[in-house]
Design a protein around this nucleic acid. Structure first.
Lengths: 209, 209, 209, 209
DNA sequence: GATGAATGAGCGTTCATTCAT
DNA sequence: AATGAATGAACGCTCATTCAT
C-alpha cells in the first residue's frame, strides 16, 4: 500500500504558504487555523504539530520575508558606486522586492497599524533597513531637520509600501491592476523621478551654501 | 438633587469615543464589545442599544472622521490662490488633520491592509480626496506616466499617512515621540521641502520642453 | 395642545391584539416584546405597564379566547333538542368558533406540543369542553372502550383543531386557502358526514345488541 | 486498559438523542444547546463539532423520524389486499408508528403551529403521506366535497396525531397514561371503529346511488 | 399614561489549543 | 507524521425586565 500520496511540497511548507496567502489577504485576526489547514489541505492539528501556535505561524511567515529582504539589501550594499546611484539602486531593489512579495508590506502594515504582537521583530527589521539608507544619505548632505535621514526614510518607505497596501483600493478606483507590469513600471519611474528631484534639490542647496 | 450621576458626555458618545480609541489602537478584530463597554463605563448591552452592531459602531467612528476630513478639504478648496500655493496648502491641511486625528489614518490602514469589510466607504472617501488633488496637478504639467496625478496622489498620501501609522514603531526606534510638537514640525517642513523639490523639477522640465 | 392623538383602540387593547396576532402566527418564543410593541405602535416599556410580564400577556390572549369559547358552548347547551341534533349543533358551533378564531387552536397547539407554561389553564378549559360533550354521548350508547366519550372527544377535537393548525401547510400543499369560505364549507360538511356515520353505527350496534 | 471511558453510544448519537428528547418535550425554542450538551454529557462546543448549527441538529432529529416513517409506509404499501383492508392496515401502521415515536408528532405540531423554519421539509413529508392515502380512497368512492381524499386525510391524521400531542394534558385530565398499553389499545380500536363507520357509510351511499 | 435608558442573564457560535491514538 | 475528538474561553448579540422621569 502507498504512503498517502504527499503533495509536491511537504505539509510544513504547504501550511506556511497557506498562512502567508491568507494572512496577507485577510489579516491575522480574520484568519482561523481551520482556514489555514483547509487551504493547505492538512489536518487542523497538524498545524500545531509544525508551528506551536498561531502567533508563531505568523512569525514564521514574516521571518521568511525578512530573510529574503535582508539578502536583497545585502546584495545592493555590496556593489560599489556613487551615492546617487546607490540610492537609486536601493530604491529600485526595495520596490522590486515589494512588487514581487506584495503580501509582505500588507502584513507589516496590518501589524503596525494595530499594534500587533509582532511589532518588536518588525522594529528590528526596520532598524536594519534604516541603517542601510542612513549612511549614504548622511554622506550626501548636511542634516537639517527637513532633510534628515529619518525623514527620507519615512518618506521613501511610505511611497513604496503604501502603493502595495492600497493596491486593492486603487485597483477598484482606477480600473487598472496596480500589480500589472505596465502599472508597476509607471510607479517605478515615478519613484526614481521623485528621488532625482530630491537629489537635485539637495545638490542645489549644498552648492548654494 | 444631582442630574443622575452621568459622565460629562452621554453614554452614546462615550461609547463612540471609547470605540475610536480602542479600534485605533488595537484594530477592529482585536477589540471586543466588552472592551469598548468597559472603557466607556457602560453596560455591554447598551452598546447595542445605541449602535446596532459592532460593524455599525466602527462605521460611525470612521464616518465622523470622514465628515471632519471633508470639511477641512472644502475649507482649503475655497481659498483662491496659485497652484503651487494651493498644493502646499492642501498638503499642510492634510498633514495637520492627520496629526490631530492620528488614529484616523491607522483605522484606514487597518482596513485597507486586511481587506476589511469597510473598504467600500474608504474607497469613496479616497476617490473624493483624489479628485481634490487631481485638478491642480493636471493644471500644472503634462501628464507623463511618471508625473501623473495618480502617482503624486499615492506618493503624498503615503508620505503623510505612513508617518502616523508607523508612529509607535518610530518612537521606539528613535526614542522620540513622533507626535510631539517638535517632531511634527520637522516632518511638516520635510514634506513641504519634498513638494518644492517636485514642483521645481516640473517647472524645469516644462521650461525645457 | 392636543393630548397625543390616541388610536381608535386604546394602547392596552392594541397591545393585546398585536400579541394575539404575533403569538398566533409565530409562537410564543419566537415573538419578542419589542415585536409586540412595534406592531402595536407603543413603547416597549408600556407593554409592561399594562401586562406585568410576557407570560401574563400571553395568558390574557388565551383568556380572551376562553371566555368567548365558553360563551358559545353555553349558548348551544341552552337549546333543548334531540341528542343527535345536539351533537351536530355542538360540532358546528365548535367548528365555526375555530374558523372565526383560527389563531386560537394554533396557540393551544403550540402550548400543548411543547409543554408550555400555560398547560394548566388549557387543561381547565379542555375539561370544561369535555364535560359538555360527555353527557349527550353517554346518553347515546353503552360505553365500550372503542366508543367511550373520551375517544370521541379526542377524535372530534383532533378533526377540527388540526384542520386549522395545518392550514398554512395544507394551503401550500393544495394551492387553495383552507380558510376561504368554500373550503370551510367543504370541511364542515365533511365533519357532519363523519358524525352521521358514527351515529348511524352506534344506532345499528345498539339495535343489534 | 479501558476503551477510553465513553458511554454506550458515541457522542454524536448521544447528542442527537438528547436533542430528540428535549426538543420533543419542550420545543425547539425552549431548548438551548447548553441543555442538549448537558443532557448528552458532552461539551457544548462538541455539539457544533458534529452538527453545524442548532437548526441542523433539529433537522437531523426529524430527518431520522422521516426515514423511519417512510420505511413503515413503504412496508404497508407493498402488501396486496382489498381496499378496505388496506385502509385499516395503513391506519394501524400509522398509529403504531406514532405510538412508538410519540415525540415525532409533537415535533411536527410545534413547527406547524408556529410556522417554524422547518415547515418545508414537513410539507414534503406530509405530501408523501397524503399520496399514499389518496389512491386507495379515490378507488373507493366518488369524490364529493364531504368525502374527498383531502378531508379524510386531515381527519385521520388529526385523529391520530392529536392523541399523542395531547397525551400530557389528557393524562392529567383523566388520571391514566395515554401511552400505556391498555389506553393505546382502546384508542386503536376506536380508530378502527371510526374507519369502519365511514367505510360502511360510503358503501351504503354508493349502493344507494 | 408613556418613554428612553439601562442592565443581567443567557444564547448560538467560533476558535486556538490539547490529547490519545 | 497525522488525525478525529474534545474543551474552555470568549465573542457578538438578544431579550425580558426595571426605573427615573
Amino acid at each position: 500500500m502507498e504512503k498517502k500520496m504527499s503533495r509536491p511540497k511537504d505539509s510544513a511548507s504547504r501550511i506556511l504558504n497557506a498562512a502567508d496567502e491568507l494572512f496577507g489577504e485577510l489579516g491575522y485576526d480574520a484568519v482561523s487555523i481551520s482556514d489555514v489547514a483547509r487551504k493547505a489541505q492538512v489536518n487542523k492539528a497538524l498545524v500545531f504539530y509544525y508551528y506551536s501556535s498561531k502567533a508563531e505561524l505568523f512569525e514564521q511567515v514574516i521571518e521568511r520575508y525578512y530573510a529574503a529582504h535582508a539578502a536583497v539589501l545585502a546584495a545592493v550594499a555590496r556593489r560599489p558606486m556613487s551615492v546617487r546611484q546607490r540610492l537609486h539602486d536601493m530604491l529600485d531593489a526595495y520596490f522590486r522586492f515589494m512588487a514581487t512579495n506584495w503580501r509582505y508590506p500588507r502584513l507589516i502594515q496590518q501589524q503596525v497599524s494595530s499594534n500587533g504582537p509582532h511589532l518588536e521583530s518588525i522594529q528590528r527589521n526596520l532598524a536594519m533597513l534604516f541603517e542601510s539608507i542612513r549612511v549614504p544619505l548622511e554622506d550626501l548632505a548636511v542634516q537639517r531637520p527637513e532633510t534628515s535621514a529619518r525623514q527620507f526614510f519615512v518618506t521613501f518607505s511610505g511611497m513604496v509600501i503604501n502603493y502595495f497596501t492600497y493596491a486593492p483600493v486603487l485597483s477598484a478606483m482606477w480600473g487598472t491592476d496596480p500589480l500589472a507590469e505596465a502599472e508597476l513600471a509607471a510607479r517605478r519611474s515615478h519613484l526614481h523621478w521623485v528621488l532625482d528631484g530630491m537629489l537635485d534639490k539637495l545638490d542645489r542647496e549644498s552648492a548654494q551654501s
